[in-house]
Amino acid sequence: MGMLNNRMNLFVIIVGLLLFLLPFIYESRTLLILLTQIFIFAIFAMSYDLLLGYTGIVSFGHAMFFGIGAYSTGIILHRMESTIFTVLLSLLVGILLSLVISILVGFLTLRLKSHFFAMLTLAFASLFLVVAEKWRTLTYGNDGFTFPLPEFLRDRTYFYLVSLTFMIAIYFLLKRFTESPFGKVLVAIRENERRVESLGFHPLYYKVIASVVAGTTASISGSLYVLSLRFVNTSVFTMEMTLDALLMTIIGGVGTLIGPIIGSGLIEFAHHLLTDLASISPIFERWIIFFGILYILTVIFFPLGIVGTIRNRISGKGKKEKYAKKTVAG
């Protein structure tokens, strides 16, 4: 485990450094914007995987926290002057709101069994969507609103670097989190919740804390997302957001942190390429069809996703590695 882990960390650090250097070597606005988008969705997908892959909770309402972050940032920058300080304030407000709401919603919903829980989260997310649509004085309803950015973040290169830093920091923080004794209990809950109980752990508390961490992380990605668009509307609360995270996580590999990042890269790139192809044939405008097919194929043939499948191959070969405590969630 130690060896594999170190190699993995090294790999992440090298790729990270290369990505840091990229804007200075290769100047392409489109690519920078695309990569920024990938980083932001990678954060969102990682937070989702904490629930889906590690704890085994299927939530259909994760966009709720994404949207809370998005609207916190949007409204604060719209109402107050835009400085670095207000941007940080808006991030913080989003995190705090998500914290409170995830605790409340968590204690209300996480007692329920899987599909009942999923339905209830869907209902909560819809509730937020309706509020965002109807509270027009604050949100301007469906149309949304634009807001100014502080000087510093208007530069695409800087914003790219900020998003990258956020993604890498969150990756390592969540990695620590999932490999702690706490994280190990989360994986055990995914495997057999009743058994966890008879070992003397309280599954509900663990699930609530997991959803708090996932919620606050999602809120950060929501804030970054609207900062990149300089615009916010109700789409941040929609089911499609949650489904995007679900798709990225499943294609990349559930129960890993690198999986959602790869998934986010693939989906965003594919999206970009397919929209470019729209001039060739109108079917490419309906890119969602392709994602649907991809999703079905992944679930049937690679249920572990890209990372999971590769990891299985490797550990299949190197099984003799002694002391290889390779739990599914390494």
């Binding site: 620590r176 702690s180 004794p181 190990k184 495997e191 070992l199 003397g200 804390i209």
Partner: peptide, 25 residues
Amino acid sequence: LTVFENVRLAVQSRMNIRYPFFKHF
């Protein structure tokens, strides 16, 4: 989970290590 991890979780519970979330297990 591995055999080791199965037992380790029980030991962890016994030793009252319940909520630390940062140090590597």
